[in-house]
């Protein structure tokens, strides 16, 4: 089976244009940019709780929220991508063109990943803007900062893969959004509470439960980001716990590999499911 790169790029390009002009995408992006990165920071500064120093370290405080909200934007946009085309009738027409289903999924994945990553980069870039040239950003190291940004794109890829799978299996937009929100809530809140509870009950056998962290891609990304950017505080208890376990500046490989696996499996599932369904 030969895959056409030009078809993938055409679909990816269309997805970027479609996302940029999509009202919901713009609204969610604005929330991401303003609420998470700017408004809390400015408010805390105005309250005198933070000085205008060590911006990257302080931005790290919001990383947990940034990854969570980035995940929310991703699951909403991704979960609607196939199902809305199915509802508006464009999918039947697209499938009647000389394109393969795998090209549609990969094209959509690439386009949406680029659009969301671009939006996140702008948000983070602006948040970091005041500290450019300052000593604090140099203390993190450019390499770690870039690794952190790539990790965030990785988390986006994971959530996008999951949401595309949701979009393929859902019969309607309502069902897709509901499933996507549940998955997001599960990874950001429910799993965390359950994980902490289990560890408290397990007491001495805690170490065996560390591996359960690999079942939550959002948590993996948060741990990795915190290890890389070394924030002064993270509000997420289980993340703090895991950072102590892995250690700041510890081994990034197992966590990075877990993100990669998490990105590939749902995407592969989306392709297989898309082929098995008839439109």
């Amino acid at each position: 089976m030969r895959v056409s790169i030009s078809s993938i790029l055409t679909i990816a390009k269309k997805e970027i244009k479609d996302s940029i002009r999509n009202r919901w995408f713009l609204v969610l992006s604005s929330i991401f940019f303003l609420l998470i990165l700017q408004i809390p920071y400015i408010i805390l500064m105005l309250l005198g709780l933070f000085s205008y120093e060590n911006v990257p370290g302080k931005t790290g405080i919001f990383l947990a929220y940034a990854i969570s909200l980035g995940g929310l934007i991703t699951v909403i946009v991704g979960s609607l991508s196939i199902v809305s085309e199915k509802e508006q009738g464009t999918l039947s027409y697209l499938l009647s063109q000389p394109v393969r289903k795998i090209e549609i999924i990969i094209g959509k994945f690439m386009g949406l990943l680029l659009a969301i990553s671009l939006m996140m980069s702008i948000g983070f870039g602006i948040a970091m803007l005041p500290s450019i040239g300052e000593a604090e950003i140099n203390s993190i190291g450019l390499e770690n900062f870039v690794y952190g940004v790539v990790t965030m794109f990785g988390a986006t890829a994971v959530m996008l893969g999951i949401s595309l799978a949701i979009s393929v299996v859902s019969g309607s937009k309502t069902m897709a959004i509901s499933l996507a929100l549940f998955i997001w809530l599960f990874f950001t809140t429910i799993y965390d509470s359950g994980f902490l509870g289990t560890m408290l009950i397990a007491a001495d056998e805690t170490q065996a439960y560390f591996y359960f962290i690999f079942l939550n891609p959002i948590e993996i990304s948060e741990i990795l980001m915190n290890m890389l950017l070394n924030p002064i505080l993270n509000p997420n208890l289980s993340v703090n716990f895991m950072i102590n376990y892995f250690g700041i500046g510890g081994s990034f490989e197992p966590l990075s590999l877990a993100i990669l696996v998490w990105a590939i499996i749902p995407l592969g599932f989306s392709v297989i499911e898309f082929y098995s369904r008839e439109y």
Binding site: K14, K17, D18, R21, N22, Q88, G89, T90, S92, Y93, S96
Partner: peptide
């Protein structure tokens, strides 16, 4: 096809 084939945001 029977239905519209247009992308509304494009």
């Amino acid at each position: 096809p029977q239905q519209f084939i247009l992308y509304p945001n494009l």
